[in-house]
Design a protein around this nucleic acid. Structure first.
Length: 601
RNA sequence: GGGCUCGUGGCUUAGCUUGGAUAAAGCACCGGCCUUCUAAGCCGGGGAUCGCGGGUUCGAAUCCCGCCGAGUCCGCCA
C-alpha cells in the first residue's frame, strides 16, 4: 500500500532524479529506518557482509560482529580485520586490503562514496546522495517511524516539606530530558510526581502548622520549610510532641476528615511552590499521584494480602516482614501498630502504574538503590513486571551533604534567581541595543539553559559537588554556546530573507557543498535521531548533551569558513539550505534538553 | 564490617556496556584572529605514569583479582 502510494507520488515527479533514486533506495531498505546515519550504517554492514562472504571469511562466528564504529578518520570504520586476523592467522592489514578489494559499491542507489583500507581499518565515506537525503529528511521533519508503546516515568517526587533544592534539581532535570528524549524516540510518555503525603516529615509540618503561622510574604514552599525546620526542632526536644505527630499520622491514615483537610492544605501549599519552580525550569508533570490514595482505596491492603499468600512472610509480633531472595534484610511491609509503610504503598503504586503502560521508569537517587532492588523482587512475587531505574549519584555542597531538616541546602529558586541575574549581566554587556524586556527574556532563556545543561551533561553515576561559581560561569561551552550557534543561524536566515533570497529551496544542488566543514556539519545533522535512539535505549540523557555541543562546534566551524550571504548565487542556495537545516536541528536538540532556542542573543 | 557507585592534565568532565588509529573536550594559563552573515566565536601552544599493584591479551583508560581514597545504603524513616 505504502509502496504504491509512494510510486504515485513518484510518477508526478520524475524530473527530480535524485528523489527517484531516493525512493528506489527506500524499497531496498529492509525496513523503514528513520535516521539517515543508521541507514548509512546498515548499508555499510550489508556491503561488508557481501565482501566477507566473497572472501570466504566466516564473520558470523565473530563475537563483535562487524565491529563498526564512528571514527574521526571516516564516517564509519570497521575493525573487523582484527578478529579475522586471529582466526585466519594473517596480518590484519592484509585482510583489510583483501576485503576492500572485494567490496562492490553499487553504481547508484547507494549512500556510500568509497571505502579505503587504512592499515587494519576499513574506512567508509558517505556520498552526496547521503548529504542530500539528510537535508531532505530534516526539511520534511520525518523522524518518528513507529509507535513504541507507553512509558510511565516518575521523577522529582520531592517530599512536600520545603522547596526543591539542587539535589532534587538533578533528579528533575535528568528525568525531564529523558521524558523529552523518549517522546522523540516514539514512545507515548506519561510523567508522574509521586506525592509522599503520609511520611513523618509531613506529619511534622502539619503538626507545626497548628502552632506556627506560615509567613505569607514568602513563596509557599519556603514558608512550609520554615515551619518544618522549627517544628522539627520542637519535636526533637520534647517526646510528647512526637506523640502528637504520630497521632496525626494515624488519624490521617484512618481518614479522619478534619485531619485530612489540614494535611491536604499543607501539602497543596507546598506543592504549589514546587510547581512554580518546576515551571520556571520548563518541567511539567502530567500527574501528581498522592500515596495516600493507595491506602484509602484499599490497594495497599490488597498488596499485603497477596504477599502474605505468595511471599515468604515472617511475623514479628503484629509487624510483617517479607523475605526477599538475594537480599539480606527482610523488608518490613507493615508496622506493629498495623499502619502502613512506604514500602507497601510504593508496591501498590507500582502495580497500578504497571497496569497502565508497557514500561515503568523511575528516576531515583543513589540512596534509593536498595529500595529499588527490593521493589523489583517484591513486585516479582506479585507478578508485576519490573520497573527500570535511572539511579543518579548525590549532589553535595563544599560544606557537606544536603539536608532540608538542618536547613543546609541551596534552593532551586535561589539558584535560578542568581543564574538569571548573571545571564542578564552578559546580555546587557553585549546588547545595549535591545529593550529591557527583550534582554530579560534572553537572560531567562540563557540562564535556565545553562543551568539545565550543567546538570544533564554529567553522567548520572557521577557524584557532584555543587559549586556556585562554576554553575554561574555562563561563558563556558554549555547551553549558551549551543544557543549562540542557533542565534547565528537565525541571523543569517533573517538577513537572507530581507534580501529576498529563498532559504528553503531544498532542491538546490548539495553537490556544491564540498568544503570539509560543510560535509562534517551535514554528517553531524544526520546523527540526531541516532543519538536520541541511543540515549533513549540506554537511558543516558548526557549523551544528548554531548551531541548538542558537538553539533554547535560543527556549525561554528562552518560559519567561520563558509560565507553564506556573500557566496556566489549558485553556492549561496545550498548553503542557505544547510543553515536552515542546522537551525532546525539545533533548535530541536535545545528543546530536547529543555532549553529555549532564542533567535537572537 | 557487607552491598553498590565513582577515582582520567591544576580544576570539571567525555570515552569504559561491545579492548584496537596520536586518550577527547571545557575552565584556568600563554600567543594569534573583528573593513565579510552576532568575537557568548575561531586558530595555535604548554600541561595526563587514565588512583595504586598484579593478571588476561598480539594489544588494556576499557575485561578480571587485590589494595587505597571518596560517596551512598544496610530503620516498624521516606
Amino acid at each position: 500500500m505504502d509502496l504504491l502510494h509512494r510510486r504515485k507520488i513518484n510518477r508526478k515527479n520524475e524530473a527530480a532524479s535524485v528523489e527517484l533514486i531516493s525512493l528506489m533506495y527506500f524499497y531496498l531498505s529492509p525496513s523503514y529506518i528513520k535516521t539517515m546515519f543508521l541507514e548509512f550504517k546498515k548499508e555499510v554492514e550489508h556491503l561488508l557482509k557481501e565482501a566477507l562472504e566473497k572472501a570466504s571469511y566466516e564473520y558470523k562466528e565473530l563475537e563483535a560482529g562487524l565491529d563498526l564504529e564512528e571514527s574521526e578518520h571516516a564516517d564509519i570504520a570497521s575493525r573487523v580485520a582484527f578478529p579475522l586476523a586471529r582466526a585466519y592467522k594473517q596480518p590484519p592489514k592484509i585482510i583489510a586490503a583483501d576485503i576492500v578489494n572485494r567490496l562492490e559499491i553499487p553504481a547508484e542507489n547507494t549512500l556510500i562514496s568509497n571505502a579505503v583500507a587504512a592499515g587494519p581499518y576499513i574506512n567508509f565515506y558517505a556520498n552526496d546522495f547521503f548529504l542530500h537525503k539528510t537535508l531532505q529528511r530534516i526539511k520534511e521533519r520525518i523522524w518518528v517511524a513507529e509507535k513504541k508503546g507507553k512509558i510511565i516515568i516518575e521523577h522529582t517526587s520531592a517530599n512536600t516539606d520545603g522547596p526543591l533544592h539542587i539535589g532534587h534539581l538533578r533528579n528533575a532535570i535528568i528525568g525531564d530530558v529523558l521524558v523529552r528524549v523518549l517522546k522523540r524516540a516514539g514512545f507515548d510518555v506519561e510523567t508522574h510526581y509521586y506525592v509522599n503525603d503520609m511520611g513523618r516529615q509531613i506529619g511534622v509540618v502539619v503538626w507545626g502548622a497548628e502552632r506556627i503561622a506560615f509567613d505569607e510574604t514568602k513563596k509557599a514552599d519556603h514558608a512550609v520549610a520554615d515551619v518544618y525546620i522549627a517544628a522539627n526542632r520542637m519535636v526533637e526536644e520534647n517526646s510528647d510532641f512526637l506523640k502528637g505527630v504520630e497521632e496525626l499520622m494515624r488519624k490521617y491514615e484512618a481518614g479522619d476528615e478534619a485531619v485530612v483537610k489540614r494535611y491536604k492544605a499543607v501539602v497543596k501549599k507546598c506543592l504549589s511552590g514546587i510547581k512554580a519552580s518546576l515551571e520556571r525550569l520548563n518541567i511539567q508533570h502530567d500527574l501528581f499521584v498522592w500515596e495516600s490514595e493507595f491506602v484509602r482505596g484499599g490497594a495497599v491492603k490488597e498488596v499485603i494480602r497477596e504477599l502474605k499468600q505468595r511471599g515468604n512472610i515472617k511475623f514479628d509480633g503484629s509487624a510483617l516482614l517479607l523475605k526477599l531472595e538475594g537480599i539480606e534484610k527482610e523488608l518490613v511491609i507493615q508496622r506493629t501498630d498495623g499502619t502502613s509503610l512506604y514500602t507497601a504503598r510504593d508496591l501498590a503504586y507500582h502495580r497500578w502504574k504497571s497496569n497502565r503502560c508497557d514500561r515503568v521508569i523511575d528516576v531515583f537517587g543513589k540512596d534509593h538503590e536498595l529500595v529499588s532492588q527490593q521493589l523489583t523482587k517484591a513486585l516479582q512475587i506479585l507478578g508485576v513486571k519490573a520497573p527500570e531505574f535511572v539511579i543518579f549519584e548525590f549532589v553535595s555542597l563544599p560544606t557537606g551533604s544536603l539536608s532540608t531538616r538542618a536547613g543546609r541546602y541551596i534552593s532551586a529558586d535561589e539558584l535560578i534567581e542568581k543564574i538569571e541575574e548573571r545571564a542578564y549581566e552578559e546580555v546587557d554587556k553585549r546588547r545595549k541595543d535591545l529593550v529591557e524586556d527583550k534582554k530579560r527574556e534572553i537572560a531567562r532563556e540563557v540562564g535556565i539553559g545553562a543551568l539545565r545543561y550543567d546538570m544533564v551533561k554529567v553522567s548520572p553515576d557521577k557524584h557532584i559537588t555543587f559549586d556556585f561559581k562554576d554553575a554561574l560561569d555562563i561563558e563556558k561551552k554549555g547551553a549558551p554556546f549551543i544557543q549562540y550557534s542557533h542565534a547565528r543561524a537565525c541571523s543569517i536566515l533573517r538577513t537572507a530573507e530581507a534580501r529576498g533570497f529563498s532559504v528553503t529551496d531544498y532542491d538546490a544542488p548539495v553537490s556544491l557543498l564540498t568544503e570539509r566543514s560543510e560535509k562534517e556539519l551535514i554528517t553531524k545533522l544526520s546523527k540526531l535521531e541516532y543519538v536520541v535512539e541511543e540515549a533513549a535505549t540506554a537511558l543516558k540523557p548526557h549523551l544528548l548533551a554531548k551531541y548538542a555541543r558537538e553539533l554547535a562546534e560543527s556549525f561554528n566551524l562552518f560559519y567561520k569558513y563558509c560565507p553564506v550571504l556573500n557566496a556566489e548565487d549558485e553556492l549561496r542556495k545550498p548553503r542557505l539550505v544547510l543553515v536552515d537545516a542546522a537551525k532546525t536541528v539545533l533548535s530541536d536538540v535545545l528543546h530536547l534538553l529543555g532549553a529555549e532556542a532564542p533567535e537572537e542573543m
